[in-house]
Write a protein that binds this DNA or RNA. Structure first.
Lengths: 144, 144
DNA sequence: TTGAATTCGGACAATTTTATCCTATTAATA
DNA sequence: TATTAATAGGATAAAATTGTCCGAATTCAA
């Protein structure tokens, strides 16, 4: 569904948000440990998220990553996915056709439409806050 | 959604089915031309489809690929996808966690469940015959 | 002001996916 | 039976994705 980079990005963002809610700034190292991801690769992904204004970074000693508490409920899963994987998730044709639309559909076009719409809707309505919810109480997990 | 290989596989199968309905056996070359795919790569994919008993191949001069007419309505999109991409499409965790299930869910587990179920259902109910339907009348397309 | 902790950014390496090439095998037909 | 047209399959190459390394820049604190 998503690229590995995107998966790491989502997990990292959730973890940063979770810590930010408790006013903790977190380091790359801490993030990579917590979400079980390769550190240097994760660094690249975090850079992308910073550039896309999804997370904030602070350089230097005591630096790290964080998200404004106010923003956590506003950021949607779709933004994270878009920042890393672009819009191919829900715009591309199921068969990879370049020109596939209602007027010139591929043979599976109609079958995919409602699923894509549902996926899009889900991504656009799922907030970062929602995704962090289960972490506190050990109801959801980011590792393994 | 699917790998490139899988996209080619689906398109090839649809084309073969369409021709088989008119009792035409088709060659690799013809298929690759018709679905706009690299010939040698397509050959590998067709081999996989043959091994998975989705299409039949006939070697030698006048050989090619075909599907029993009776089978065309029985073969489901899910079988083609499974033969090439395996079951990762609808079994994998949205965040790539190895251990993600109802008991130990990732933070997006619940959000993905219904979408995955819908996708699975769609793949399992969409038949090859259905997918060939629009081709005759130029209602659907396999190129571009 | 120096050292340590940290992100940033570029270059590189490994792996996976996509694609190509060439030979072997098979079958029709002249 | 020889030739030709086709699939099968192995080896290799190219491209994309994933992952690593290292030095530069920044900031804190001793």
């Amino acid at each position: 569904m998503f690229s590995k980079a995107c998966e790491y990005g989502i997990k990292a963002t959730i973890y940063i948000a979770h810590q930010s809610l408790e006013s903790n700034r977190v380091s790359l190292k801490g993030i990579a440990e917590e979400i079980n991801s390769p550190e240097a690769f994760t660094a690249k992904i975090l850079q992308q998220l910073v550039k896309n204004n999804i997370i904030d970074s602070v350089k230097g000693a005591m630096g790290g990553f964080q998200i404004d508490k106010d923003e956590i409920s506003k950021i949607k899963l779709s933004q994270i996915v878009y920042a890393i994987d672009g819009n191919k998730v829900y715009t591309g044709c199921g068969l990879g056709l370049h020109t596939c639309n209602d007027k010139k559909p591929c043979p599976v076009h109609d079958n995919f439409i409602s699923i894509r719409n549902d996926l899009k809707k889900m991504l656009e309505t799922t907030s970062l806050l929602t995704m962090t919810k289960g972490l506190d109480v050990g109801l959801t997990y980011l590792k393994r």
